[in-house]
């Protein structure tokens, strides 16, 4: 922390400990991924890219990557398409019980995801015989709706309502005013909510856990199962690839809306 004035030595020590716990284990994942050996041993036995090759060639992983990307993209898009109208209604509509309504749409955040997963598994997959992809899509969309509503809502709250009125006064119909004025105002919120939603869905374990079938499995759950069964460094390599992809997403996030802002939006 050169350049930062270290205030109190105790505070500084706690902060360093915090960073060690947050970051160091991730470093070890990367380090073991490059091992030439066949166990999760540290220090690694030799250096090679073998396990990356293995991971990429391992078809359950690759299929799961495709499935997870598909699910995350669809759920994010759906959550935005459903969430933006809700945001508009909550912020611009004249309705009683606005707070209650917003609370309703944020409610998936407060119920444990594993519990929601159990409910969907039991009621939709077993009870109504829905296929697991549809169930996953429903669940992930409901999970992402709060992000969409809250983050785009924060964008909308910043926009002057007079902008839409000005557009109407200049001859734009309500729909036209939405597309030419409101939507561009919402852009940062849409990007934030989209990124956040995509990452949340892609990484999700608790909600997806019970909703897996042989035909459609998500990546994190597939990796989890693999770790439980065999103890080789292939998952380290797969993890490193996921890490690399996440870094790319983070850079995109930083370049478009700013990293801290994205997460500012989910704070209560």
């Amino acid at each position: 922390m050169s350049g930062t004035r270290l205030r109190h030595p105790v505070a500084a020590a706690l902060a360093v400990a915090g960073y060690v716990i947050m970051i160091v284990p991730i470093g070890f994942v990367v380090a073991t991924a490059f091992t030439a050996g066949s166990t999760l041993r540290f220090p690694p036995e030799g250096l090679s890219l073998t396990w990356f090759g293995e991971a990429v060639a391992y078809s359950p992983f690759m299929e799961a990557v495709v499935s997870s990307l598909e699910l995350a993209a669809l759920a994010t898009a759906l959550a935005l398409v459903l969430g933006v109208p809700v945001t508009l209604a909550v912020h611009r509509g004249r309705i009683p019980g606005r707070g209650l309504l917003e609370g309703l749409f944020l409610s998936p955040l407060v119920v444990p995801e594993l519990v929601v997963g159990l409910a969907l598994y039991q009621q939709l997959m077993i009870g109504l015989h829905l296929d697991n992809f549809t169930t996953l899509l429903l669940g992930h969309t409901a999970l992402l709706l709060p992000y969409a509503v809250r983050v785009t809502g924060a964008s909308l709250a910043l926009a002057d309502p007079a902008l839409e009125e000005a557009a109407r006064g200049l001859g734009a119909s309500p729909v036209r005013a939405f597309f030419t004025v409101t939507l561009p105002m919402l852009r940062p919120g849409l990007v934030s909510a989209g990124l956040l939603g995509f990452v949340t869905s892609f990484n999700n374990v608790p909600l997806s856990l019970l909703l897996q079938t042989r035909d459609f499995r998500t990546l994190p759950v597939t990796m989890l199962d693999y770790v439980q069964q065999s103890y080789d460094p292939m998952v380290a390599a797969a993890s490193t690839l996921v890490l690399a992809a996440t870094v790319v997403v983070a850079v995109v996030a930083e370049r478009t809306v700013g990293f801290a802002k994205i997460f500012g939006g989910i704070n209560r």
Binding site: D160, A162, L163, E165, A166, A167, R168, G169, L170, G171, A172, S173, P174, A177, V181, P184
Partner: peptide, 17 residues
């Protein structure tokens, strides 16, 4: 509705896009 009135309005906040 406002878009059918053919009026021009200048808002106190200007409301420039």
């Amino acid at each position: 509705p406002p878009e059918k009135r053919d009026l021009g309005m200048v808002f106190q906040s200007y409301a420039l896009f």
